[in-house]
């Protein structure tokens, strides 16, 4: 049935999902042990889980790429992938919305409440409604991250990478393989450079600015938002590297290249999140 011409491709039974479930179980347990002083057992459990997950991803994605390249996916399957990727990105939007919401709540509601009326008079006399702030209890000084140094540069890098990936897409649609590869290569380089600057910024923040995760409202939202964004850029960069290698091996055609488009949608999404971050975390 699965090979029926014109039919919707239905995969045969597969071991990859159960491998992934076992891997995730070990990872979750390892992480819990790690956070509760589990010592070597925790590291071992977490490592076993991570190795299984990496193995599963290679295997599962490898299978999908093989099926795609051998022409098993018809146009209806292609549309399924497009719907699925769009909805997945929507779920990611909601995930980031949760943390943006937390930042908004602290800046607009909880910090001002702590600095007014009886709360201020009885609990935290002298606490003022300012931003960036670590909250009324933490008196240690820190320097907030300015917008116009590395963050502005990173904005430029990510926006440029959006351009290069689109340039690569044009090339793919016109079957210009060299331009496709170079466009993707430039995108990957820009992504890695962004991540490098982000790491440098964190080191600078911890070492020189005394801006840590423990610095109350500002520290928590700063690291949570930029950290999860950086994690997503990392995933996006790995995905870009995969489609770069696939492009070099001659995968994708002008008409049939959902994987490329899915990755570029994801990359643009990460880009848009960064613009939000730049405005509300760094700048305002």
């Amino acid at each position: 049935m699965s090979s029926q011409t014109g039919g919707y491709y239905l995969p045969a039974p597969s071991y990859w999902p159960i491998v992934g479930s076992i891997g995730l179980w070990f990872m979750a347990l390892g992480a819990v042990l790690m956070m509760n002083d589990g010592g070597k057992a925790a590291i071992a459990t977490l490592s076993v889980g991570s190795i299984i997950i990496v193995y599963m991803m290679f295997g599962w994605f490898g299978t999908v790429i093989g099926e795609s390249e051998s022409g098993k996916y018809n146009s209806q399957v292609d549309i399924s992938y497009r719907w699925a990727m769009s909805w997945f990105i929507f779920s990611e939007v909601m995930f980031f919305a949760c943390f943006f919401g937390a930042l908004f709540y602290m800046r607009v509601l909880s910090v001002p409440w702590l600095a007014e009326g009886d709360t201020q008079a009885l609990l935290w006399p002298g606490f003022e409604n300012t931003w960036p702030v670590a909250g009324p209890y933490f008196s240690e000084k820190f320097t907030p991250m300015g917008a116009w140094g590395i963050p502005a540069l990173n904005t430029f890098l990510l926006l440029s990478s959006g351009v290069t990936v689109t340039w690569a897409h044009w090339a793919l649609k016109k079957e210009k393989r060299a331009q496709l590869v170079w466009g993707l290569f430039a995108t990957v380089v820009l992504g890695i450079t962004f991540l490098g600057f982000q790491v440098y910024e964190y080191i600078h923040a911890y070492g020189d600015l005394n801006l840590t995760l423990k610095q109350g409202a500002y520290g928590a939202t700063f690291y949570m938002l930029t950290g999860f964004h950086g994690f997503h850029v990392t995933i996006g960069t790995i995905m870009l590297i995969v489609i770069l290698i696939r492009s070099m091996r001659g995968h994708f055609t002008a008409k049939n290249h959902f994987a490329f488009e899915g990755v570029s949608w994801y990359w643009h999404f990460v880009d848009v999140v960064w613009l939000g971050l730049f405005v509300v975390v760094y700048w305002m």
């Binding site: 937390a102 602290m106 670590a134 909250g135 109350g216």
Partner: peptide, 18 residues
Amino acid sequence: RHFGTNFFNAAGGGDPVM
């Protein structure tokens, strides 16, 4: 719980009600 953030702690500018 484990990494010292203060999302739900008023002392750090957060709020359990959040």
